[in-house]
């Protein structure tokens, strides 16, 4: 691909993700309203569709206050980190055959895992730099949760790598032309979905910011657009995880009749709706339950999954 074409692709993917994230604010609130038998935002524009715009204008004009007791430089960097790492992860996703920023990169999967682990800095440092007890507790929870679930996230993808024989995401999608990996790697799919929820700190795994006990956890002290970056970073995280589940387990762009790009977007959007449904339907576990499930159930499952997959591939 020419350099000009590549730049267009980069702008399209970044712009698409950012506008999708803004749209998600409205979609999530409307869907939650639907599932919880209430209206949701319906005042700004038709069906309330201009609500994200109103929210963005409000956030931009609010005072971006940083508390005097905060560690100022770290406090300001933390929200930018989650935004940047979530967007960078999208670089390795192939949205259609031959279209993607670095979709053919032979260490793309590892790059995504690296960006996911760097995202943990944002919440940990945000919580630490705020220098308040709720933020610190939220940051500690986020650190423990994200460190633990990163392990299962990486291991659950090992089965996919064994089957596809490559770390390149485009290669993994091509290998799923006949059979989506959700069938042979069902356990890996379930574990990756749960780990994805924990990595993006979405309900039911939003313990780092559970408002009933920690006010807002790590972003208690944030205001204005600094808070907005955490907020949008979370939505981009959901988009990234949904796009990656589509790529790893649901056959990426493969599908009958419709063009590849449409299939990819369709699968991703359905997964995003599933994420919202989880939020509407699931209660929040205790923190010790979260840790126990991870290390005592998910870890053995992923290891057995990897063992069986390896045995099936190795034996003729």
């Amino acid at each position: 691909m020419t350099t000009g074409g590549q730049i267009v692709v980069i702008i399209m993917i970044m712009g698409g993700a950012l506008s999708l994230a803004a749209g998600l604010i409205w979609v999530e609130r409307r869907l939650l309203g639907l599932w919880q038998d209430r209206y949701g935002p319906n005042r700004v524009g038709p069906f309330g569709i201009l609500q994200p715009l109103a929210d963005a204008i409000k956030l931009l004009f609010k005072e971006d206050w940083s508390p005097p007791f905060a560690d100022r430089s770290v406090f300001l960097i933390a929200p930018a980190v989650i935004f940047a790492t979530a967007l960078l992860s999208l670089a390795v996703v192939p949205v259609a055959p031959g279209i993607g920023v670095v979709a053919e990169w032979n260490v793309g999967l590892l790059f995504f895992l690296a960006m996911a682990s760097l995202g943990a800095y944002s919440v940990i440092l945000g919580g630490w730099a705020s220098n308040s007890k709720y933020s610190l507790l939220g940051g500690l929870r986020a650190a423990a949760q994200m460190l633990s679930y990163e392990v299962f996230m990486g291991l659950s993808l090992a089965g996919v790598v064994v089957l596809a024989g490559s770390f390149s995401l485009a290669e993994i999608v091509r290998a799923q032309a006949d059979l989506w990996y959700v069938v042979p790697q069902f356990l890996g799919f379930v574990v990756f979905l749960i780990a994805g929820l924990a990595e993006t700190r979405r309900l039911p795994f939003d313990l780092p910011e559970s408002e009933t006990e920690l006010i807002a956890g790590f972003h208690t002290e944030y205001s204005g657009m600094s808070f907005g970056l955490f907020f949008v970073g979370e939505y981009i995280g959901i988009i990234t995880i949904s796009a990656l589940i589509t790529t790893f387990f649901l056959g990426g762009w493969h599908g009958p009749l419709l063009p590849p790009l449409v299939w990819f977007l369709l699968k991703t959007l359905v997964l995003i709706a599933v994420f919202v449904l989880f939020r509407a339907a699931m209660p929040r576990p205790r923190f010790d339950q979260l840790m126990a499930w991870g290390w005592k159930i998910l870890l053995p499952i992923t290891l057995i999954n990897l063992l069986v997959t390896g045995a099936v591939v190795a034996l003729p």
């Binding site: 990169w105 032979n106 260490v107 590892l110 790059f111 895992l113 690296a114 996911a116 682990s117 760097l118 943990a120 800095y121 940990i124 440092l125 919580g127 630490w128 610190l136 940051g139 500690l140 650190a143 423990a144 994200m146 460190l147 990163e150």
Partner: peptide
């Protein structure tokens, strides 16, 4: 490239997060 990504994944991403965790505790 593999070593470069591993450097970020293992050192910057995992080990240093643990350092921050210990410092916070």
């Amino acid at each position: 490239h593999f070593l470069a990504v591993l450097q970020v994944l293992v050192y910057a991403g995992a080990i240093m997060v643990l350092f921050v965790f210990v410092i916070m505790i």
